[in-house]
Amino acid sequence: MQPETTTPPRPAHMGDVAVLPPGALPEARPATSARELAADFTRGIWRENAVFKQMLGLCPSLAVTTSAVNGMAMGLATLVVVAMSNASVSAVRNLIPGSVRIPAFVVIIATFVTVVDLTMNAFAHELHKTLGLFIPLIVVNCIVLGRADAFACKRPLPRAVCDGLGAGTGFTLALVVLGSVRELVGFGTVFGVSVFGAAYPPFLLFILPPGAFIVMGLMLAGVNRLQSRMGG
C-alpha cells in the first residue's frame, strides 16, 4: 500500500545504505557505534518522517488528532509497538525463512498490538475508549510493518530498536503537531490549556473530519515549501 509520493517506495532502506561505507554488507558489520545508533534514531524524526515525508499511517494521523493529548497517546501507543516489534523481528531475523517472513512479522506485530490494547484498556481506560478502534488498527499501520521489513530484519538488535524508537517518535511528534494545530484553531486551547482566552469562539471545522484533511494538506504544503527553500 504505497501511496503515490514523490519519493521512491522504500526510501528508508535507501537512506540507510548511504551511511554505510562502500562495499560493506549490513550483516557483516561488527559492533555498532553510538553515532550509528544516533543516526538510526534521528532519521525517522524529520528526514524520513513517516507522516509528513512518506505519507504513511495517515488513518490514525487524521482520525485521532482532534486534540493534542489524543494525538500524543496514539503516537506513544504506536511507538511502543514499533519498538517492540522491531526488537523481536531483529532478534529472530536469522531463524525465520525469507518466504514466510511477512506473515511471521504480522503475527509478531499483532501480538504486541494486542498487548498494548489490553494494557491500555486495563490501566488507561478513558484514553482507550477515546482512541477505540484505532488501537487494534495499529496492526495495519504501514509504518510498523514497513520498519520491520525494510530495516529490522536485516540489522542487529540495538540498531533495530533505535530505528523503531526514532520512527515512533517521528510519528508521535507529527500527531502532536497536527493535534495541537487542530485543537488551537478549533477550540483555542493546546493540551487543554487555553491560549486565546475563554471568549474564543470555537472554529468547529478544524475539529470535524473535513478539518483533518485540510489541515494535513496545508501542513504538507508547508513542508514542501520548507524543503524547497532549504534545497531538499
Binding site: 529472530v92 531463524l95 525465520i96 525463512p97 518466504s99 514466510v100 506473515p103 511471521a104 503475527v107 509478531i108 499483532a110 501480538t111
Partner: peptide
C-alpha cells in the same frame, strides 16, 4: 516454513 510460522504463532 510451517514449523517457523507455527512457533511464532504459538509464542504469540
Amino acid at each position: 516454513l510451517v514449523l517457523a510460522l507455527m512457533v511464532v504463532c504459538v509464542i504469540g
